[in-house]
Write a protein that binds this DNA or RNA. Structure first.
Lengths: 212, 212
DNA sequence: GTGCGATGTATCGGTCCGATACATCGCAGC
DNA sequence: GCTGCGATGTATCGGACCGATACATCGCAC
């Protein structure tokens, strides 16, 4: 999962580890707290060994000041390679069981702007199925085994059940929106073809009313 | 976390691994999918080595048939020890940072029936604080960095923010309920004193209306 | 001038997961 | 009667990820 997220972020811009972590936290803040350096650095090493990313020379950036008055310290900037982009496209398109768990789904969703519509739909439906199963499990426990459990445990289940129901509704909305034609796909994210750097993501759910 | 959950469950009844996993899944179904044997068995080994649990002879159970017509196979039934009970009491009472993350909070909450009221309150408030921080982080991103992110990512954040707000409300309710005198504590869960096997958990949130 | 918070890279031990292997029990279907 | 198959049951292994920790530099407020 981390591999996918790193590849996805580096596709937007080269970054060093610290920056990567901040962007990761911003992008996935709704999913997981903050990714640990104990995962990040080893994964970077692994990706580099595999050839998906390379170290890039620290550029003087946008020609502003910040000249090399000091020795510029040991910041290591990583950059995605062509093979890395292919790897990303492959990871983002294939959906295994781990694609539908909380973290996996979150990461995939966060890169939906770089995912083609058919895959988006497939992932949303897979996630919905999974949550529906969890929901049924909770209903079962709440129905059949209620007297075996104490009030706090039951309250926990009820809260969980509510969260499931809410997420299913959210997914339904997204699926309907996805099917209704809108949501264009950015070209160039396929394994080959137009290499143009992407942008312009589609609007997913504009039906929300209240934004205070 | 697994250690705490196992100790808590074995306090209700001796069990073998498979059973433990099922009970764990039922009790924590709202939190995590299903605990893996790859965690369960090593943890059982560790707890046994530490002396918190012991293997118990497979009892003939409730004197029904099921005689030893076969060699009765290798089911290993675990039972909590006195030291294990103390360990559980200690783990359940102390609240570190990991007590407030999703999994940790869920496990602690699931055993609130065996937790004294002061600790319950402390944990609920700690959890609330943590979720409030997450909420603020999401609001920041949604406010300040909104134009840097694509529509899907934003939708993810918005959904996460909504979940945070909902959980805070839920926690407020539980805290208010907890403070309002109700919610008696089962005696005998302290490190020393009345050893009486517990039961009779308190009713946490009865204010829910709809139960279709 | 000095301390301190943000930036930055890195490792280590430990927890937990997913895949896999293997053996037995009860019973449904032929 | 026997045969296979799904539930029950124990167990290990490699890998992903976390939390604690260590260490060094930068900018700046006091």
């Amino acid at each position: 999962m981390l591999e996918l997220a790193i590849l996805g972020l580096l596709q937007e811009a080269p970054m060093h580890g610290y920056e990567l972590r901040k962007e990761l936290t911003a992008k996935l803040g709704a999913i997981r707290a903050a990714i640990s350096y104990g995962s990040l650095y080893p994964t970077l090493r692994r990706l580099q060994a595999a050839g998906w990313i390379t170290e890039a020379a620290e550029t003087p950036a946008t020609a502003e000041e910040v000249p090399a008055l000091t020795s510029r310290r040991g910041r290591v900037v990583y950059k995605i390679t062509a093979e890395g982009k292919e790897r990303f496209a492959q990871l983002i398109a294939q959906a295994g069981p781990e694609t539908y768990d909380d973290t996996g789904f979150g990461v995939h969703f966060a890169f939906f702007a770089r995912t083609d519509q058919a895959t988006r739909l497939r992932i949303l439906e897979g996630r919905r199925r999974k949550i529906e199963e969890r929901r049924e499990g909770l209903r079962d426990v709440l129905g059949r085994a209620a007297e075996r459990l104490d009030a706090y445990t039951l309250e926990l289940q009820r809260h969980g059940l509510e969260a499931c129901e809410r997420e299913v509704r959210w997914l339904e909305e997204l699926i309907a929106n996805e099917r209704s034609g809108r949501a264009p796909t950015v070209p160039g994210t396929g394994t080959a073809g137009g290499r143009r750097e992407d942008n312009s993501p589609p609007p997913p759910g504009e039906s929300r009313k209240e934004r205070p």
